[in-house]
């Protein structure tokens, strides 16, 4: 295995209904350190399932996931420790509504990284500052707009100082005028060298930021390559058809 590979999946499968529904059907993928990978594909193609299985929110039916060479879906792996290294951002933000923004961000570091309150809050404030939400630190999630919520969700994940960030359609639930502010945060993150795996329908973002695009259909990777190759000269007819529909 190459040194710079951080995540690798081998023959990853996820079946539902006793095998009748194959959400993932033999996915082999690698993700390098510092790489920004965008996963695209039609609805039901398994892209979210793929992303969620990387931090074991979906437990694979068979196959293997390796993280830094260690198998993740094995009994020996401490799944909670693994998840600490993988930040995740959800379509519906999933902020904790009963906590202030600041508390949303500090609960992980305080409970898991054993940081002091002051330490965790300093880090949280620094991150909030960067996404322009420092003045909302003591607000509750219900008092924020969708775009603000998603920016908070991103920095909440960053508070755990993850090595990889997973984005599961982070802009799909946003009003159009709020998509930009979230994508800007993601772009900055990508420029800083964060390893990112994004499931998204934002093709502009994919073109501009992605190092590599993976196209999935029917639970399999149909085609992958650089944005130039994928958008200018896709080879597979499935890919061509999909891109025609959305571009």
């Amino acid at each position: 295995m190459k040194d710079n590979v951080i995540i690798e999946t081998k023959d990853l499968c996820k079946y539902y209904l006793g095998g009748k529904l194959k959400a993932l059907d033999g996915v082999n993928a690698t993700i390098d350190k510092g790489e920004v990978v965008v996963v695209i594909g039609p609805s039901g193609s398994g892209k979210s399932t793929f992303l969620r299985s990387l931090n074991m929110l979906e437990i694979p039916t068979k196959g293997a996931i390796y993280y830094n060479g260690n198998q993740v879906n094995s009994k020996k792996t401490n799944i909670n420790l693994h998840r600490q290294k993988m930040g995740m951002v959800f379509q519906h933000f999933n902020l904790f509504p009963h906590m202030t923004i600041l508390r949303n961000m500090t609960i992980g570091p305080m409970k898991l990284l054993k940081k002091s309150k002051a330490e965790a809050e300093a880090k949280a404030m620094e991150l909030l500052e960067r996404v322009g939400l420092a003045d909302r630190a003591n607000a509750y999630p219900s008092q924020l707009s969708g775009g603000q919520k998603q920016r908070v969700a991103i920095v909440r994940a960053l508070c755990m100082e993850p090595e990889v960030m997973l984005f599961d359609e982070p802009t799909s639930a946003l009003d159009p005028e709020m998509v930009g502010e979230v994508l800007d945060v993601m772009k900055t993150l990508a420029k800083e060298g964060m390893t990112m795996v994004c499931v998204t329908h934002e093709m502009g973002f994919a073109k501009e930021v992605a190092d590599r695009i993976i196209f999935m259909a029917d639970g399999q990777i149909v085609e992958e390559g650089t944005p130039e190759k994928m958008f200018e000269a896709p080879e597979n007819p499935r890919t061509k058809q999909f891109l025609q529909c959305i571009l």
């Binding site: 909670n80 998840r83 600490q84 999933n94 609960i107 409970k111 898991l112 994940a157 755990m160």
Partner: peptide, 20 residues
């Protein structure tokens, strides 16, 4: 999604239940 958000931070099942 609340459980998933808690678990994705690395909180275990009991911590997610108690705090979230």
């Amino acid at each position: 999604g609340q459980t998933e958000a808690g678990r994705s931070l690395g909180l275990n099942y009991v911590q997610t239940m108690v705090f979230i």
